[in-house]
Design a protein around this nucleic acid. Structure first.
Length: 512
RNA sequence: GAGCCGCUAGCUCAGCUGGUAGAGCACCGGCCUUUUAAGCCGAGGGUCGUGGGUUCGAUCCCCACGCGGCUCACCA
């Protein structure tokens, strides 16, 4: 191999590694073997011997440990070689001496490259510099990698490559694994929390018939079922099916599920993302505020280790209770109106008088009701002022922007709803559910009218959902929490792409 | 969808007022039995994102396109 004049373009490097794989075969070492038994992890060895010094390990002459992983560093001194093996727990150094592993194994080691998967067995020892290592009596190459690993010092930093080739990102950058381990803990923590409270986890359809694709203000993805010749949409929310289950008497249900919204992509938005929605019969939105505070504070502790965690330069204190901000109240204050009637009387010029921002002023044209205008004013004037160092609840939402929420008895222009904000993002949305079928019909009709006016995010009229409500849904409160957003908060990630393993990107021109 | 920025070796990056490209790591050959960004010696490796234009000459200037990042808009 390696005839003089060999080049090292990527094609040449791959060819060379293929040749090495062939040489391994000739030496009886299958470059893609199978069935190896790996009794230990690097973490196991590290934990067990973290406090043993060189002399202690020498005296103990530990049992032989067998570990496997990717070769992420090689330092060869001729007849002895140090390598670092990386498994799911981290890295551990292996010290391979020719006279300890034997001629044959050492020949195989010489055919190993950075990136290959290898197995080593041997006792634990410490080197002269004190690094815990496996002194190999056995070395096997398990999988030949044909492509080189990124550079060891800087790792892989190019965002595009990191997202497109997440396998390389994960293999090269240890901190990336930590993010996804935290995400996993987060989801497990939510399950545990709700399971403790007698909820059951359910799964509802992802493929929605056109009239079912509601539950949120968003444009859906469209698809088609061939055998039924049926147009379908991917769900934009879990809400309406979960509430059907409340009608059926399950009383406490949740679903952690992927939902799809056919909208723009940016730091906070991926077209597919994960929400948890949960619904609890005989609860109110007040109950859910208390539940949310408890849940999120506990998750912060479980995932980050404390109920105070940094996010983008701000320390966020998740400890309950969280401050509450009244949407209507803040807007009343901003316009010095004493009560809702005062806002009804405002002219468009008066509404617009508080902001010079052209974007916000433009958005105002889409507001068709006082409720829309209140939500608009809140977003324009109050949202930027929400507390940064604590999550908060926004309460007192107008009816018009809440088509599935129950009217407030004392003020039917408002609904019993809250949104939780943290780190400048909306992370939860919850309300006491509308269970009056006739009121829900009227709300759906308003949505259909909005759609007729050109609102592409309006919900369809879901007749079966009305039929379900006609059977009687107990008084219920429900909530949705964006898992990706929580994952961003708890991993201090500025982009949703950093907490989604395979974020959607435009296709590559050529895969090379 | 808009604005700004980026795209040079497998990776991380240099590249001057325009003169056809460099480093470190990786790779290849040689030496090396306690290294750890191992070391020492030597050798290769590039359609400079793509396509046009200007120019005697373009990685560099201009235009278009592609992909990505950031900001904004829509939203969770």
């Amino acid at each position: 191999m390696a005839e003089p004049g060999a080049t090292s373009s990527i094609e040449d490097q791959i060819r060379l590694r293929e040749q090495k794989a062939q040489q391994l075969r000739e030496k009886g070492a299958h470059p893609y073997g199978n069935g190896v038994v790996v009794p230990h992890t690097t973490g196991f060895v590290r934990t067990r011997h973290s406090s043993d010094d060189a002399a202690a390990l020498e005296a103990e002459h530990t049992e032989p440990y067998g570990i496997a992983g990717r070769i992420v560093a090689v330092r060869s001194m001729g007849k002895a070689t140090f390598l670092s093996l990386r498994d799911r727990d981290g890295d551990l150094q292996v010290f391979v001496k020719k006279d300890k592993v034997g001629e044959q194994a050492y020949e195989i080691l010489k055919l190993a490259d950075l990136g290959d998967i290898a197995f080593a067995r041997g006792r634990a020892m410490r080197t002269r510099t004190g690094e815990l290592s496996i002194e190999a009596t056995e070395f096997r190459l398990l999988t030949k990698a044909l492509r080189p690993l990124p550079e060891k010092w800087h790792g892989l930093t190019d965002h595009e490559t990191r997202y497109r080739q997440r396998y390389v990102d994960l293999a090269a950058n240890l901190e990336v694994r930590e993010i996804f381990r935290k995400r996993s803990k987060l989801i497990a923590g939510i399950r545990r929390f709700l399971d403790e409270r007698d909820y059951i986890e359910v799964e509802t359809p992802v493929l929605h018939k056109p009239e079912e694709a509601g539950g949120a203000a968003a444009r859906p993805f469209e698809t088609h079922h061939n055998a039924l010749d049926l147009d379908l949409k991917l769900r934009i929310a879990l809400e309406l099916h979960l509430k059907r289950l409340i009608v059926g008497g399950l009383e406490r249900v949740y679903e952690i599920g992927r939902i799809f919204r056919n909208e723009g992509i940016d730091r906070r938005h991926n077209p597919e993302f994960t929400m948890i929605e949960f619904y609890q019969a005989y609860a109110t939105y007040e109950d859910l505020m208390a539940l949310t505070e408890q849940l999120v504070e506990r998750l912060a502790v479980e995932v980050t280790g404390a109920n105070v965690a940094p996010f983008q330069g701000v320390l966020i204190d998740y400890a309950a209770p969280w401050p509450r901000v009244s949407m209507v109240g803040e807007v009343l204050k901003a316009y010095q109106a004493g009560e809702l009637d005062g806002l009804d009387k405002l002219t468009d010029d008066q509404w617009l008088s508080k902001t010079d921002d052209n974007e916000h002023r433009h958005k105002f044209t889409k507001a068709n009701s006082t409720g829309d205008k209140i939500a608009w004013a809140f977003e324009a004037l109050v949202e930027p002022m929400l507390p940064r160092e604590k999550p908060c609840f926004v309460v007192d939402f107008p009816l018009e922007v809440s088509p599935l929420a129950r009217k407030r008895d004392k003020e039917p222009r408002l609904v019993d709803r809250f949104e939780a904000y943290a780190g400048g993002m909306e992370v939860a949305n919850a309300f006491s559910e509308l269970n009056d079928p006739r009121d829900q019909e009227a709300r759906f009709r308003a949505q259909v009218e909005a759609a007729a006016r050109g609102d592409q995010e309006a919900m369809p009229y879901d007749r079966d959902y009305i039929r379900a409500l006609e059977h009687g849904m107990p008084p219920t409160a429900g909530e949705g929490i964006g898992i990706d957003r929580l994952a961003m908060l708890f991993t201090d990630s500025s982009s949703i792409r950093d907490v989604v393993l395979f974020p959607l990107l435009k296709p590559e021109e050529d895969v090379k």
